[in-house]
């Protein structure tokens, strides 16, 4: 075998190894980063429109992931949940600016509350139109669901929202109340809604995560 052939074979082996490392480690991370950057842009848009939502996403994200782990969701299910947390409120862009800014949600009329509640449906519809985000549309659409309303008969089949919707529903409610009325009121609200608005299994996991966090991390600033 000529020296040239040996050199070509060696270089090919090295080049292939380099390519494999590049596609196995570098590129998947780059894709993940690009996706997260996009999610941050959506989140930033909503936070600028409704400054009262500032920081909520980070809190919901941290707590949701802990509940998902407690409920033994697979890495893929957790991944979808993470995306859904970031995108759950993009439909808020269709909610009137003056409804949320400068007014307390406690002063809303029933009609205004209904308008606000439509954001989950709008978020779902928007995600439905983006091919790579389609798979989380269902999670987002039901993130303010009432647990007792399901399963529902849809086109002859019983439909139950994904478990991630149940988690988002419980965690978003907890974080919202906790930010406005404190953690004691938030825990009491979760307990009161269990079985009706919130899935009992998710409520149990959430309360257990919160109790554990209290013992292990008393200064868990992101949530408490």
């Amino acid at each position: 075998m000529s020296a040239f052939s040996i050199a070509v074979l060696l270089l090919a082996a090295l080049g292939t190894a380099g390519l494999l490392v590049y596609i196995k480690f570098w590129l998947p991370r780059a894709v993940e980063e690009r996706t997260l950057e996009s999610l941050r842009a959506f989140g930033k848009a909503i936070e600028l429109r409704f400054p009262s939502h500032q920081g909520l996403t980070e809190q919901v994200l941290q707590l949701s992931m802990e509940v998902a782990t407690a409920l033994k969701l697979s890495p893929h299910e957790r991944h979808l949940l993470e995306f859904a947390v970031h995108l759950r409120d993009i439909g808020l862009c269709a909610i009137p600016y003056s409804l949320v800014n400068g007014r307390s949600w406690e002063d809303w009329s029933a009609a205004e509350q209904t308008t606000y509640d439509r954001h989950a449906e709008i978020s779902g519809a928007m995600l439905e139109m983006v091919p790579s985000l389609k798979q989380i549309a269902e999670i987002v659409r039901h993130h303010h669901m009432r647990h007792e309303d399901f399963p529902k008969l849809v086109e002859g089949k019983f439909f139950t929202p994904p478990i991630q919707s149940e988690i988002l529903n419980a965690v978003a409610a907890y974080v919202w109340i906790e930010n406005h009325q404190g953690s004691v009121a938030a825990r009491a609200a979760i307990t009161a809604k269990t079985g009706t608005e919130i899935d009992p299994a998710v409520a149990e996991a959430l309360l257990s995560v919160l109790s554990f966090a209290r013992i292990e991390e008393p200064l868990r600033r992101a949530v408490v």
Partner: peptide, 30 residues
């Protein structure tokens, strides 16, 4: 490996265009 690399690149491009499209949809909703 080349094929996989290109398909990742293609996914990144898709994310870029879908981000533009989703942001513009948000604006049109508002």
């Amino acid at each position: 490996a080349l094929r996989t690399g290109l398909s990742y690149r293609s996914r990144m491009d898709r994310i870029y265009y879908e981000t533009i499209s989703a942001l513009s949809q948000m604006l049109q909703r508002a």
